[in-house]
């Protein structure tokens, strides 16, 4: 790819994102309110899952680390932002104007994201020394520790959970963040700066020999991934309006991992598709589950994981993106 096409692509993608953002808010104000609330909630959860899957893909797919505690970051962000809106603004919220409410929500989301990023920094630090499997276990452990700590925090309800969170979230909010998240991560990995992430994935020793500060890169990946997971947690909290430590257990992390693995570790498009697919699948399985009283979902998820690894370990998309299909058709080298 020559420099000129690269600049053109930047320009194109920015415009595309702008158009998508406008479309999101037009549909939010025009017809989303008329939709069946059940379908709307599925679409919103799909959006939250997209944010989670894409941000985890930065860590697991693009940087080649294996984090199993993404739900932990989500819970930090969710609880933090929900605590802010519930404890400081719950009474006065109705008397505020819409813009003020939006600002408060935005602030709480950012605060939640930053809190999660801070925790991500703390998780990233042990990865100074750890590789592969150990890192997986440590992140799993961190996720569990976060859950136990939240369980013991009385100010956020402990085991009873945190009820009465104001329902500030909407379709527009979620998909704005979906766009921000995909845009940021897309631009990161397509920049020369982001090649560091890919280099660490491909060969850590070689990357180090080429002057990449591998530790720093890993920590960066964790921090960025955790930030978006925290934001997703905040969105989730203000959609569901109730948080419980059990919501963010190990199975939740696994669900996000499956999205990343299924879509292809290293493909944003893949993560998006897999997040939509799995969110829909979950709803399709709900009648079956109510009928048999058995949770088939996790059995199917686990079989999916095993079979994927045996038959198609690169996932649906591998490391390709949707754009690479278009570029191939025009005959450009990938």
């Amino acid at each position: 790819m020559t420099p000129s096409t690269k600049i053109k692509l930047n320009y194109q993608s920015s415009i595309l994102w702008g158009i998508a953002l406008t479309l999101v808010w037009i549909s939010q104000s025009a017809w989303i309110g008329l939709m069946n609330p059940y379908y709307l909630s599925i679409i919103i959860y799909a959006g939250i899952n997209i944010i989670l899957a894409v941000s985890l893909n930065l860590v697991n797919g693009f940087t080649g680390q294996f984090s199993m505690g993404h739900a932990g970051f989500m819970s930090v962000g969710g609880y933090f932002s929900a605590y802010i809106t519930t404890h400081y603004f719950a009474q006065s919220l109705d008397s505020l104007s819409q813009i003020q409410q939006a600002l408060i929500f935005l602030g709480s989301l950012l605060a939640g994201g930053c809190a999660a990023a801070l925790v991500g920094y703390c998780v990233g630090l042990p990865s100074l020394r750890l590789k592969g499997d150990y890192l997986a276990i440590v992140t799993l452990g961190f996720g569990e520790i976060i859950r136990v700590v939240v369980l013991n925090l009385d100010s956020v309800g402990g085991a009873r959970g945190l009820p009465n969170i104001p329902g500030l979230c909407s379709f527009g909010w979620v998909y704005t963040w979906v766009l921000i998240c995909t845009f940021v991560i897309w631009r990161i990995i397509r920049s020369s700066y982001g090649r560091e992430f890919l280099a660490v994935r491909e060969d850590e020793i070689a990357a180090e020999a080429m002057g990449v500060n591998t530790t720093q890169v890993k920590v960066k990946a964790f921090v960025i991934g955790a930030f978006f997971a925290g934001v997703a947690g905040g969105l989730f909290a203000h959609t569901l309006r109730y948080l419980n430590p059990q919501t963010f257990d190990f199975n939740r992390s696994v669900e996000i991992i499956i999205m990343v693995v299924l879509g292809g570790m290293g493909s944003i498009t893949g993560s998006i598709l897999a997040a939509i697919f799995l969110t829909t699948l979950r709803e399709l399985l709900r009648p079956l589950q109510e009928w048999t009283q058995i949770d088939f979902r996790m059995v199917i998820y686990s079989l999916l994981l095993i079979l994927m690894m045996l038959l198609r370990p690169q996932g649906l998309m591998g490391t390709r993106e949707i754009t690479s299909f278009f570029r191939n058709r025009r005959g450009d080298p990938r």
Binding site: V261, D295, M298, V299, S302, L304, M309, L310
Partner: peptide, 30 residues
């Protein structure tokens, strides 16, 4: 589950291991 993956990257085997674990847990519930 593990022998067919003897030659594949460790991360794949790890993912399989997580999958087997979940499968036993939830098939166990069935």
């Amino acid at each position: 589950a593990y022998r067919p993956l003897r030659k594949s990257p460790r991360i794949n085997v790890l993912i399989t291991a997580v999958g087997v674990s979940l499968f036993l847990e939830f098939a166990g519930q069935l």
